[in-house]
Write a protein that binds this DNA or RNA. Structure first.
Lengths: 190, 190
DNA sequence: CGAATTACGTCAGCCATGTTGACATACTTT
DNA sequence: AAAGTATGTCAACATGGCTGACGTAATTCG
């Protein structure tokens, strides 16, 4: 017994007060709570996909993040990466070293300033990076389809608004700069 | 210079091929990529709120998760918690011990089976748990409002579909059982 | 009854990922 | 020449995971 998390406790005190009363649409505490928990589980599985693939390469999430952001922003400097990932150079060092040593990422001295190390994902690296991204995008795509026709626009608005206010412009610039898809974000959320 | 992550590289190769071509609505690779990155940043800030509060108590995310799930499912057994959190008892032990020692959680031997330890969040614990949840729900609520009128339903559908297929029923049961809000999830996603 | 199983705890050792602080090195700027 | 900057590196440490092994109490099964 108790194989998965079918396991529910004997569950006492279920008196069903509050909530449910406002059977309507508005965001009750319970509804928001459900969103919270769903976000928790959704995100877990969202990272679960790439995690298992990364394992086979001896990489972790840290490697994934580096591959992703360098892949999307070729020529990124080490300092940029640190700011994006919000980690210290000491944390990045071993991860980056491994990626460079194993040929997934290359470094090039800057032209104007030769102290700078510009990072690039190699072909070998891009292959892995794409595989990882494809896994995650496939899950998102499916979920969007099952969520309805306008779900993608709604989702983007929601996620963007979830980001700390003083970070939004940075994120918008990052995404947008890398994708060159136009100004959906900065424009639509004003 | 380079204060935040204003820092963008010199950015070479921006030739703008693919994408954008299909200017329509459909989920292009670039759009999905944007969703991916937004999800990454959104989730980071979603956890950032409680993180800073937890620090003041000397707690981490692990404590938060325990408080949350025990708080929502009073009487949960240790084994249940392990399955929900997908961690080992050795990982849980120190966290749970700290919460019990400091009076945030209590344990009670089961009535029918006295080997079982049923977990309950104390009043002191509920106060903290509620504060944490309120922080996160406030962010979600705001984001939903800024995403439009039907965004909550859409979001729930999306998130639910993001969960691994063979986990959905479990999650639905968990959320639903705890909230007693009815069968929105299990019903609407079929 | 006695043996096996179960729920939980605990000890020991390991790994990944993060942190600070201090310092070295190469390069640029003043 | 001196100061500042971009990066790398060493050392020590914290957190939160993991596995394996073992103990203990309680239940269940033969």
């Amino acid at each position: 017994m108790n194989s998965e998390f079918t396991a529910r406790p004997t569950r006492p005190n279920r008196t069903d007060t509050s909530a449910r009363a406002s059977s309507g649409v508005s965001n009750t505490r319970e509804t928001l709570m459900a969103c919270m928990e769903l976000l928790f589980f959704a995100y877990r599985d969202f990272i679960g996909d790439p995690d298992s693939m990364l394992e086979r390469y001896g990489f972790g999430r840290a490697h994934h993040r580096v591959l992703h952001f360098v892949g999307r922003n070729p020529g990124l400097r080490v300092a940029d990466l640190l700011v994006i990932l919000r980690i210290t150079k000491q944390s990045l060092a071993p991860v980056l070293k491994q990626l460079v040593d194993e040929g997934y990422v290359t470094q090039e001295a800057g032209q104007s300033d030769r102290r700078e190390r510009h990072l690039y994902v190699t072909q070998k690296g891009m292959k892995l990076t794409d595989q990882l991204a494809d896994l995650q995008m496939a899950r998102i795509k499916e979920a969007l389809e099952s969520a309805g026709p306008d779900s993608e626009e709604t989702l983007r608005r929601f996620l963007f608004a979830m980001i700390a206010e003083d970070e939004r412009s940075n994120v918008a610039r990052l995404i947008d700069g890398a994708t060159n898809t136009g100004n959906q974000l900065t424009g639509s959320t004003t």
